[in-house]
């Protein structure tokens, strides 16, 4: 195995946490993830919101939506399954009632959005464009929600469809569009490439993984919609793999990484896999200030490892050095049996 780079530790104040994400400059790489931070207000009781780099809102649709029947959530080993049903206040009420609070807090506001069909997506992008200059920095297009029925699956799984949809939404707004991809595909690189070519400013990776849990006593699924989306540390290894694959194939495409981040070390893994910034989701439920803990830990860890800037480690992970090829003809080591005698 290759030796780790030996770098002297740095004092914390020498660590520069600033990072770039496409057209944006962020004070540090930690944002809160969609659906796990609502519209921000609830968190003000527990933390200083202004310390966050930004947040992605609950997914917004052109019209308000009521959610799914219950049960909507259940906890599983190192994770949870949810099927909330993309309940939200709708674009108009978001702009009127929620955005002013967020823009006053000075955060980078990423508005996660979706439509119930192709035109719904485009309409939503157009409606949200009104928030340009009023606090919205990014439109994060969710083409990956497993929890809506009407054709939603195709947007997230068929590269040509995702390409067309992205192109139409990019044309409908002058805000940067970051496409949030689903892990429920066999070739995530093809999806990333399709949306990048359609003008996406970056991708968010990953949304939840389609999953199920069963109550053996009642012989029913634990989620009313039978399947839901798995989040939390259980999905982190899958998320890291996808971030790494996309970054290797498309090194110029900014990636916002997420999936099971609970600690600074988790965040640094995503950054080393190729993410320019990360989002913290499920962790917010147990600890409303989870993102700030991740930030403080990342800061301390970068200092310990002698990493002066985020940019120098984005995608820095190197393959493990290959072994010396096996040569059966070469002198063999004394085998175990021989050693015993």
């Amino acid at each position: 195995m290759s030796a780790p780079p030996r770098t002297a530790a740095l004092p914390r104040e020498r660590v520069d946490l600033r990072c770039g994400f496409g057209p944006l400059t962020l004070p540090h790489p930690i944002l809160a993830a969609s659906g796990c931070f609502a519209y921000g207000q609830q968190f003000a009781d527990f933390m200083d919101l202004r310390r966050l780099a930004g947040l992605s809102t609950k997914g917004i649709s052109p019209k308000p939506r009521f959610g799914n029947p219950l049960p909507r959530i259940c906890e599983t080993a190192s994770g949870m399954i949810n099927s909330i049903g993309l309940e939200n206040v709708g674009a108009e009420a978001f702009l009127r009632d929620k955005l002013p609070y967020l823009s006053a807090a000075g955060l980078s506001v990423w508005v996660n959005f979706f439509g119930e069909d192709f035109d719904g997506y485009v309409e939503c992008a157009r409606l949200l464009d009104a928030g340009r200059g009023h606090g919205i920095d990014v439109l994060e297009m969710n083409i990956s929600c497993p929890n809506i029925k009407k054709g939603g699956i195709e947007f997230g799984t068929v590269p040509e469809v995702a390409h067309r949809l992205t192109k139409a939404c990019v044309a409908a707004t002058s805000l940067p569009i970051v496409v949030k991809l689903t892990p429920n595909v066999s070739d995530v690189v093809a999806m990333a490439q399709a949306v990048a070519e359609a003008g996406a400013a970056g991708v968010s990776l990953i949304n939840t993984i389609t999953a199920m849990a069963i109550d053996v006593r009642t012989r029913r699924p634990r989620i009313a919609t039978t399947y839901g989306g798995l989040s939390g540390p259980a999905i982190k290894p899958v998320a890291l793999r996808m971030v790494h694959q996309v970054h290797r194939a498309l090194p110029q495409l900014p990636i916002c990484g997420m999936g099971g981040i609970l600690s600074g070390e988790d965040a640094l893994e995503f950054i080393m896999a190729g993410a320019s910034c990360v989002q913290v989701g499920t962790a917010n439920f147990a600890r409303p200030d989870a993102s700030l803990r991740v930030l403080d830990e990342l800061h301390a860890l970068m200092a310990e490892l002698g990493i002066a800037t985020v940019a120098e480690v984005v995608g820095c992970v190197q393959p493990i050095e290959p072994e010396t090829p096996w040569n059966p003809a070469a002198a063999s080591a004394p085998d175990a049996e021989a050693g015993k005698r």
Binding site: Q42, P69, L70, R72, F285
Partner: peptide, 24 residues
């Protein structure tokens, strides 16, 4: 009692079915 993840109105997991202007 409903299944809760957060307890402070964020996850929307703890829906209760109700009558009235909203279903939950």
């Amino acid at each position: 009692e409903e299944e809760m993840a957060c307890g402070f109105g964020v996850c929307l997991g703890c829906a209760v079915p109700v009558h009235g202007e909203r279903p939950y």
